[in-house]
Design a protein around this nucleic acid. Structure first.
Length: 666
RNA sequence: GCGCCCGUAGCUCAGUUGGAUAGAGCGGCUGGCUUCGAACCAGUAGGCCGGGGGUUCGAGUCCCUCCGGGCGCACCA
């Protein structure tokens, strides 16, 4: 098989080659330790060992563990413990390291010089260089514009958007694409519903759109389900679908006009829905332009010329253009009637993303986001001041795991064309689906068949109209958050409370969707999603709000934030950090970049989420145990304030990577 | 039939790419609001990591096999 889902072909060492990461304090000490051991082992034993660094199991073992003795034991035919003792005795001083000891069967545990470490953080040495490699394209969301978005789409968008934020935080140049299939069967089915089932004209649909009482994407949600079930009952009605598809493809007539009207309106609804989650895009490449600008024709030529596909003369695929290699009979790319399959178009689109097609879209601005970012959409006619998109050096397609076979075909297409390097950089950022537990369906009043009731979970299905709409879920979350805010802050202006409730609700939702690893099927549970306690977004937000409260209260009492650098010497920091509690909070808070780095190489936004939670947990503990504003000792108070401020900045940065805002109050 | 994913505490999930005594949240039980607001904190119970083989100094993690569940494998998109 081409794809290795478990192995996550995301990024390892090659990623670091493309993007030079920040060099935070902890990282640089780790590197110095590894280098020191590597050099010493080379001289002492004549072994070129790749020294790995670990985190000790327990925090009281120190901050860095080196298991090199285990790796050497076999080659030297000596006991790990003996080698560890030799290494520990002979390695000599390492900058930033205060002590080192042998533990267990041969671990070498290192303790950092706490005062020096904190002083480096205080001086802001964690700010390092960052430089970009080539452009990275991330494609996500990709919802068929024929109905309202549901929770499955939210998982896609949240994963994609967070991964984009992770890449950008590490210094990468990223372009976000959201592909719009505005000419496909799903749009056609809704048009069939309007035209043939409801006998509506384009003007009727326009009236529907103008009616403020109608949520158009919701209307289409029901209509799509209706049309789908009608096909089942009256299979001959499928002829309506073909007729509509042909009209759309030809781009002429009432049905085509209606299709554009519907698709454009639903795209607007999706953009609005996603904006509630703080998800933004750079460009919307549309299927209609892929069609009109003949992207497929260009790709077809390349595929034929380079013999990536062949015209089958016999067997069940006779008369089709087939791509060999993926299965015994190959994958049909062009049907015997001459029309191209979905994957064929996808290969053309993927070629464009890498700048390999020899064609480009034209673009026009669609809207401007609040932060000034302009969203562009593809068009088939040239415009003034033309922008350019695509031409990436690496492409992540955020698409659920059910489509992994098709993603394999796309990569195989690139490989067949001789673009092995680009095939390697075509990454299917896959994730498992969001399903509904039977209990959840019962809670939501979704009727289930007897068969479905026996299952562990039920797939969301747009066709069946089965699912939780994204906007409904958000409305639900906001209402619940608002009730909590109202209970605590009646004195605040209503509009402000609403804003805070929205931030909390979105924080809860994004965190909920991110805390699962990508390979885990989310069996959606409404109660769990609506929770604001425990491992949730609001928990993380609350910790940051508490930190801010301390600093605000300080000023309310007429004090000002001390000049930390002037008041806290390395000695003072070292003195205060003799407290294990303080040291652990500071250490945890200093590892944002380590956590980000690990999450990027694993391709797991969930790792960032988990780090944020652990950080919040450490702070909540700290907060509870040590009153800061009442502290008598000046040195300790200044130190605690610095810790609070440092924590606040680090947690806000982490939350920002997750797309979670910190409210003014909670 | 073939391919991929999952199986870890009552429930939902982590497990740093093979390391030290397997963790968190929820739920259960016990305790803590006159403090920088408890959307919080502390304590406690709860485990044959689906079963069986193997590789290794060392396995929840890698290999084989079996069991159970899910998802793919169209001239649909």
């Amino acid at each position: 098989m081409l794809r290795q889902a478990k192995a996550c072909p995301i990024i390892r060492s090659d990623f670091c080659a493309a993007v030079i990461l920040k060099v935070p304090v902890f990282h640089s000490i780790e590197k110095q330790v590894a280098d020191a051991f590597h050099a010493h082992i080379q001289v002492r034993y004549g072994v070129d060992l790749s020294v790995t660094i670990e985190q000790p199991r327990q925090s009281d073992f120190g901050e860095i563990a080196v298991p090199a003795a285990f790796q050497l034991a076999k080659r030297l035919r000596q006991a790990p413990k003996k080698i560890a003792a030799e290494l520990a005795a002979e390695i000599g001083p390492i900058p930033g390291v205060a002590a080192l000891e042998v533990a267990g069967n041969g671990y070498i545990n290192l303790r950092l010089d706490r005062g020096a470490y904190a002083a480096a953080l205080l001086r802001g040495e964690e700010e390092g260089m960052s430089a970009a490699g080539g452009k990275i394209i991330v494609e996500h969301t990709n919802i068929n514009p024929n109905k309202a978005a549901h929770i499955g789409h939210l998982r896609n968008a949240t994963l994609g958007d967070t991964f984009v934020r992770m890449l950008r935080a590490s210094g990468a140049q990223v372009e976000v694409q959201n592909y719009i299939d505005n000419t496909g069967v799903q749009v056609a089915d809704v048009v069939v519903g309007f035209h043939f089932l409801e006998h509506k004209t384009t003007a009727d649909v326009e009236a529907l759109l103008a009616d403020p009482a109608v949520r158009f994407d919701y209307y289409c949600w029901d209509l799509y389900a209706h049309t789908s079930s009608y096909y089942k009952e009256q299979p001959e009605s499928l002829a309506w679908r073909s007729e509509t598809l042909h009209a759309i493809e030809a781009g002429e007539g009432e049905l085509a006009r209606m299709a554009h009207l519907v698709a454009d309106a639903v795209v607007q609804a999706h953009l609005k829905t996603m904006l509630r989650l703080d998800v933004e895009y750079d460009v919307l490449p549309r299927e209609s332009e892929i069609l009109h600008l003949q992207f497929w024709a260009a790709a077809f030529e390349q595929l034929k010329q380079r013999k990536a596909i062949y015209l089958e003369s016999e067997g069940k695929n006779a008369g089709c253009w087939v791509m060999p290699g993926l299965s015994e009979e190959g994958k049909v790319i062009v049907r015997s009637n001459g029309t191209v399959t979905y994957v064929g178009k996808d290969i053309a689109y993927q070629l464009w993303k890498f700048g390999l097609l020899g064609k480009d879209f034209h673009y026009r601005p669609l809207m401007t986001y609040a932060d000034g970012r302009v969203l562009w959409v593809s068009t088939d006619t040239p415009t003034a001041g033309e922008h350019h998109f695509g031409n990436g050096s690496r492409v992540y397609n955020v698409i659920d795991a059910r489509q992994s076979y098709l993603q394999d075909v796309v990569a195989a297409g690139l490989r067949g064309l001789g673009y092995a390097a680009q095939a390697e950089q075509s990454i299917h950022f896959s994730y498992e689906m969001v399903a509904l537990s039977p209990r959840c369906c019962a809670d939501l009043g979704i009727p289930l068949s007897e068969e479905d009731r026996q299952r562990p979970y039920v797939e969301v299905s747009g066709r069946k109209g089965l699912g939780v709409k994204a906007d409904d879920l958000m409305d639900n979350l906001i209402a619940k958050a608002l009730a909590e805010v109202d209970a605590r802050h009646v004195e605040k202006p209503a509009a402000e409370r609403q804003r805070v409730a929205e931030q909390i609700a979105i924080g809860a939702l994004r965190y909920f969707l991110l805390k699962f690893t990508r390979t885990s099927v989310i069996a959606f549970d409404l109660q769990e999603a609506l929770s604001f306690e425990g491992e949730t977004g609001p928990y993380v937000q609350y910790a940051a709000v508490r930190a801010r409260n301390i600093l605000r209260k300080l000023e309310e009492r007429g004090e000002t934030l001390p000049d930390f650098a002037a008041e806290l010497s390395a000695e003072a920091l070292g003195r205060q950090l003799q407290s294990e509690d303080f040291w652990q909070v500071l250490l945890a808070a200093s590892k944002v970049d380590s956590a980000l780095d690990g999450a990027l190489s694993a391709g797991e936004p969930a790792h960032v989420a988990r780090y944020a939670f652990q950080l919040a947990q450490a702070f909540n503990n700290f907060y509870h145990q040590y009153p800061i504003l009442q502290e008598e000792s000046r040195e300790k108070k200044v130190f605690l304030l610095w810790m609070t401020d440092f924590f606040r900045r680090q947690l806000e940065r982490t939350a920002g990577i997750l797309g979670i805002q910190i409210p003014e109050y909670m």
